[in-house]
Design a protein around this nucleic acid. Structure first.
Lengths: 189, 189
DNA sequence: CCGAACCTACCTACTAGTAGGTAATACGTG
DNA sequence: CACGTATTACCTACTAGTAGGTAGGTTCGG
């Protein structure tokens, strides 16, 4: 584990539990065990850290979506796995996904970071739209409408459910909010 | 318009567009036109301002839900008006409702504020559950399931839709995310 | 004359970021 | 192999700026 990776991990955890603006280089230095100034060696400005964080997250999320497709055949099973991944990102109701964390504090960011954030959203919506298009064929999602509308609704639902669960520090709120949607998924694989 | 009200208005605007932790007393003082120290006369600590903000918001939101019920008969029409109120709170994609804004920055708050925030959520869910229960009777929401699950999903949907719309600075994202749900509402009144 | 509302001037704590130095390690060349 | 040179990774010590908050005085209407 390199120092750089340790810094990214600590920063991601802090951003997801408290928000990107709510942790300082001093916090990071305590968490990782190097001096505050040394962090600037790895990430000269906090904006550089933000960019590294979101782009690493975007890559790993793309891999995770790919793996969901490999391990699940039907649209219903894929969406169910998608819900699971957002649910597990809550980690006990303490955290939200980095995308939600960055969305809420968007003003602090400049172009390169914003572009990456928008890219993340686009990736995610495109994947969902694909899966909902598939659902129209394989009938594994009951009452499925237009794929693009379903995709937008699905993303808003999971992000809103995360927000509410974290606000209440209770991951069951996520389950409550996604019960109806889960009921629409035909879970054969 | 009293100074106190002007302060609350400016603070609410700032909290909804940028987040509660992202504006300072110095910002407020510029917006309202009194010195920074004078704000402490009205709200000794920023926590007092937070409490005043959320409790005023909770009250006014309760009134607005009441008024929705008075002006709309069916559950479908009421939910449609509910969506409208969240949609208009976006004000061009710049803002989110205060409840979303406070949810995202929850860590900065202490008990009295958190209690008020939880109260807001409870109020909102109770109202929605009532309306969805009504929907089972008046058939004005197609495919309606258990009222509590529908209520949770609806709240997560509108909050998530606000988050996404503000992240993209584009209120149409809210419409995209709520298209499917709107399609389920039978809009006779 | 009292108190609400406001002021100037200040404080402490913390922020991101910089300047400049020190080890250790890697690298190319005679 | 040995020697000089970069480079990496870290350090101490500092800056300028901003945060929320306080002390104490002024102004003014009831």
């Amino acid at each position: 584990m390199t120092t750089r990776t340790a810094l990214l991990d600590a920063a991601e955890h802090a951003a997801r539990t408290r928000g990107f603006d709510a942790f300082s280089y001093a916090d990071l230095s305590r968490a990782v065990g190097i001096r505050k100034a040394s962090i600037h060696h790895h990430f000269p400005a906090k904006a550089d850290l933000a960019h590294a964080l979101i782009s690493r997250y975007r890559e790993s999320f793309a891999l995770s979506l790919k793996s969901i497709c490999e391990m699940n055949e039907t649209a219903g099973a894929r969406l169910s796995a998608f819900l699971d991944s957002y649910r597990s990102a809550l980690s006990g109701g303490e955290a939200v996904c980095l995308c939600v964390a960055f969305s809420t504090g968007r003003d602090s960011f400049q172009d390169p970071v914003l572009a990456e954030l928008d890219g993340f959203h686009r990736d995610c919506l495109a994947w969902l739209e694909n899966v909902f298009t598939q659902a129209l064929q394989d009938k594994s999602v009951s009452g499925a409408g237009a794929a693009d509308a379903e995709a937008s609704a699905c993303l808003a639902l999971v992000e809103g459910a995360q927000l509410i669960a974290r606000a209440a520090r209770d991951p069951r709120r996520f389950d409550d909010a996604t019960t109806v949607f889960r009921g629409r998924l035909v879970n054969r694989n």
